[in-house]
Design a protein around this nucleic acid. Structure first.
Lengths: 143, 143
DNA sequence: CTTGGGATTACAGATAGCCCACATGGTGTC
DNA sequence: GACACCATGTGGGCTATCTGTAATCCCAAG
């Protein structure tokens, strides 16, 4: 999914964590977006599955542990609330939904994301300039 | 510099590390770019100063320790080489310069950065759509 | 009663950032 | 002249944070 920056340039394209493999820091806005797009509370598991379809993860399921952790932290920050469901059949599970504050945060995230993208674009320009090449076309990114 | 996404929305805009305060993972392409743009080897100290001027850090000097650590790691990966200088006057210092492999890596980074920016843009679109608002103008990002 | 998948958490290794130590020289100041 | 203080330059070490592996718990199906 992510273009992998492999210093070795050999065939072994193992992703290099140090290079920002997943931009995992952005899992928060991804989760906020998923919750905002849903008209009903979602379970952690469902969020993991939908996250896989998000541009941020591009088909690869994110680590579930990380998602639960982020959800927990978001709940502590008042961005989401959860409710335990104990259905007659099946294990107890938690359903998460967005709070008003979470919605506001997502609104602010939209600006932040624009800044991130702009900054990355600037760095890209500088890199191309430093190499003395023209800024190439945007490659195919999806995978 | 970075637009800060502060869940609390009160006046206290302390940066929230979990939200990707600095995208510090991108310090590597930043350093590569600085070295590529220079026609002579640079000292770590100079790199720190130039990094502060880079879009990625927007005026704030990055942690010097982190830069030295990244340089060390990059040297182990063959992206840069260093030479100790022991001038008659002044302390011993190390001068870093890019290897061919480092240059190649930066070239690949250019594509990766484009993908990052594109993905973040997509997420932004989705977030706006989930909130039922139109994608707002890109705000002023520099700081 | 064992397999299997959903759902969650505990734990430990990897990372990143801050404070500070070491080394050297210039400048201010009492 | 002695001392403080700042700037260049490079790093060690501590701590907080982050992240992935593994384990746990629960229940249904076979």
């Amino acid at each position: 999914m992510w273009a992998i920056c492999n210093p070795k340039a050999d065939g072994d394209l193992k992703p290099c964590a140090a290079l920002g493999r997943t931009l995992s820091r952005l899992s928060q806005p991804t989760i906020l977006t998923i919750l905002a797009a849903s008209d009903e509370p979602l379970h952690g598991y469902v969020i993991v599955q939908r996250a896989a379809a998000s541009p941020m993860f591009g088909g690869t399921k994110p680590d579930a542990t990380g998602v639960y952790r982020t959800l927990k932290q978001m709940e502590e920050n008042g961005l989401v609330t959860s409710q335990w469901e104990t259905p007659r059949a099946g294990p107890a599970k938690r359903a998460f939904s967005l709070t008003t504050e979470g919605r506001d945060t997502l609104r602010r995230w939209i600006d932040s994301l624009a800044c991130y993208a702009a900054t990355i674009g600037e760095l890209r320009e500088e890199a191309a300039q430093a190499l003395g090449i023209e800024t190439p076309e945007v490659p195919v990114c999806g995978g």
